Amino acid sequence: MMNGKRIVKWVFAFACTIMAGCGFALAGEGYGLYKNAVQEVSLEEKVNEIRSQESFTSLEDMPETYVQAVVSVEDHRFYDHFGLDLIAIGRAVVNDIKAGRYVEGGSTITQQLAKNLYFSQEKTMNRKAAEVFLALELEQKYTKDEILELYVNSIYFGDGYYSVGEASEGYFGKPASEMNDYECTLLAGVPNAPSKYAPSKNLALAEKRQQKVLSRMEACGYITEEETTIMAAQLVALN
C-alpha cells in the first residue's frame, strides 16, 4: 500500500507532466492508448517475455561499471525520481518551445522502458502521455533495480541486438557479465543512436561517444577526475 505522501507526490508529478508536456486535452487520449495497450497484453506478460529470453542478464551479473555508465549517461537521477524527471521535462519543454516543435522529451529510463515495451518510436504527444501512465505503473509494480534490469535487456544496440547480453556476445564474443571497462563504457553509449554508435558501424565515433560516457560518470560522482584520466588511458591501451 502506498502512503499518503507518495500518492500526493505521484498526483503532483503527473499533473505537472501532463500540463508541461502533453496538455489536458491529450491526457485522455494518452490514457486511452495506455489502457488499450495493457489490456491487449498485460504488463506482467511483457515483463515475463523479457525475462524468459535466452540472452537475459540479471543486474547482479552485470559489471558495476556498466550499470554506473548506463545510469550516468541515460538518467542520472534514476534512483531519486519516481519514473518522471520534472527537471528534465521542464528543460525539454523550454527546448521544444525554442525549436517550435517537439524535439526533446526528457524521458527517464522508466519512460524509455515503457516505450520499448508497448509503443513506437514515433514522437507524438498522445503517445508521450501514454508513456507517462505506463511509467507510473512500472514504478508502482517494480523496484528500481528491476526496471533498470528490464531496460538494458530490451533496448536496441544496433546490428539486430535487442539486449545487453546479445550486444556483448555479438560485438565482443562474450557474455555481458565478462565485459571489461572498455566494453562496458563503449556499450553504454550505443543505444543513444545505434545507427551511429554501433562499434561495427563506426568505432571511432563509438569511442567518441564513450568519452562522453566517462565524462558523465565523473559528473555523477561514480569516478573522480583522476580516475577518468586513468580509465581513459586504460581504454586506449585495451583497444
Rank of each mutant, 00 (worst) to 15 (best):
A27D: 09
E44S: 11
Y162G: 04
A193H: 08
T65E: 06
H76Y: 15
A15N: 05
A88P: 12
Y66C: 01
M62P: 09
H76E: 10
T124M: 04
C16A: 10
L113Y: 13
A198D: 01
V132S: 03
Y66D: 03
S107L: 10
A114T: 05
Y102C: 00
A204E: 13
G105P: 07
A37G: 07
L84V: 15
K115I: 03
R91A: 11
R209S: 00
R77A: 09
G4T: 08
E225P: 01
D80C: 00
L43A: 02
T143I: 00
L117F: 14
A114R: 04
E29R: 07
W10G: 00
M231Q: 08
Y79H: 08
D75P: 15
F78E: 10
L214E: 02
V11N: 06
F82V: 04
G21T: 03
N153R: 07
G28D: 12
V73R: 10
Q68F: 01
A27Q: 09
D85R: 06
D61Q: 13
F78S: 05
D61V: 00
C184R: 01
G165S: 06
Y182G: 02
Y162M: 01
K196A: 09
E225A: 11
A206E: 05
E60D: 11
A176F: 14
W10P: 00
D96Q: 02
E227N: 01
A188Q: 10
I18S: 04
H76D: 11
E54I: 01
G83M: 14
K208I: 07
D80K: 09
L134W: 11
D96M: 03
G106T: 08
N192M: 02
Y102K: 10
L134M: 07
L205R: 15
A13E: 11
L235D: 01
A37S: 13
T65R: 00
M19K: 14
A25R: 10
A25V: 08
N192L: 03
Q121K: 13
F56Y: 15
T110D: 11
E64P: 01
